[in-house]
Amino acid sequence: MQRTGILPAAGVLLLPLLFLPGCRDSSETASVSENPADSSNGRPRVALIMKSLANEFFSTMAAGAEQHQADHADEYELIVNGIKDERDLARQVALVEEMTAAGVDAIVIAPADSKALVPVLRRARQAGVIVVNIDNRLDADVLRQENVRIPFVGPDNRAGARAVGACVAEHLQPGDQVAILEGIRTSDNARQRLLGFQDAMQAAGMEIVDSQSAEWEMSRASTVAASMLSEHPELAALLAANDSMALGALAAVRAAGRSGQILIAGFDNISAVRSAIQEGRILATADQHGDQLAVFGIEAALKILKNPDEIPDDVETPVDLITAETVAP
């Protein structure tokens, strides 16, 4: 029994290794542009620490950064790491520690949490590593408490959501009922987009009758939106804080047999939503140029490296409104 058991068991343990070469987005695989030990030629090494690379938004962002590095190979080296899912804070903290220990010159990070990452980033700063914050803004209060300055390079989510909301409002009458599908409430993006939607709806005189979190997730959003639709039969529009949830809302509207009667808007401009916008099923989304976000962060980090005494202020990156007129195929 023992003898027959051990070999297959070893086989099972080893089998997943077969998948690794194809698994470029596997959580722990770091793609190192060059052997990190071989940095004697003076090029600075930049570590890009992302949220979940399984999320299209972040995988696009990482791909943009890798492309940029390939085009500027003589200027810097890039090490890209992601975590398995968006809530795996502990792993992201560990990644910052590992990159600091590996002696990188700069860390560009999309924090999975606006507060929890601050202490470890302060330690990285104290170790002499340049830190640039992208995508999800670190909490200003905690930064002040920890007494550390980290520049934020990224889009104004609130303004983007406001633009999307205003576009929806143009198609409605004042007093119409709208509902909001929020992201995960602990993240700053979710809060900013919610505020932006609220700004736009208040400005246009709409009534927000329901606002719930669907945790950024498609299937979850379809359940929540279905309930919103039957609880509020007069609903005229659903504003989703990301595109996955907008697709979930679209499915709920169709299942309720009300296709075309409810306006839907999202945020992020993922490819699946571009098709839906072309077909007229979704009204609008916002493009924050996800493929360039990490690049903006890396450029800021390189600039600081050249001139370490001058830590710049926050850099705002563009957010564009995407509708049927402006959508790219």
Binding site: V12, L15, P16, F19, G22, C23, R24, D25, S26, L53, A54, N55, E56, S59, M218, D243, S244, L247, I270, S271, A272, V273, S275, A276, E279
Partner: peptide, 26 residues
């Protein structure tokens, strides 16, 4: 433990197949 392994294998394979992107089928 076998299905815990499959949980990771199948999810990883899914991401390879889809390139981690949502696919819109219409």
């Amino acid at each position: 433990i076998v299905t815990l392994g499959m949980l990771e294998i199948a999810r990883g394979t899914t991401k390879v197949l889809t390139d981690s992107q949502s696919l819109y089928l219409g």
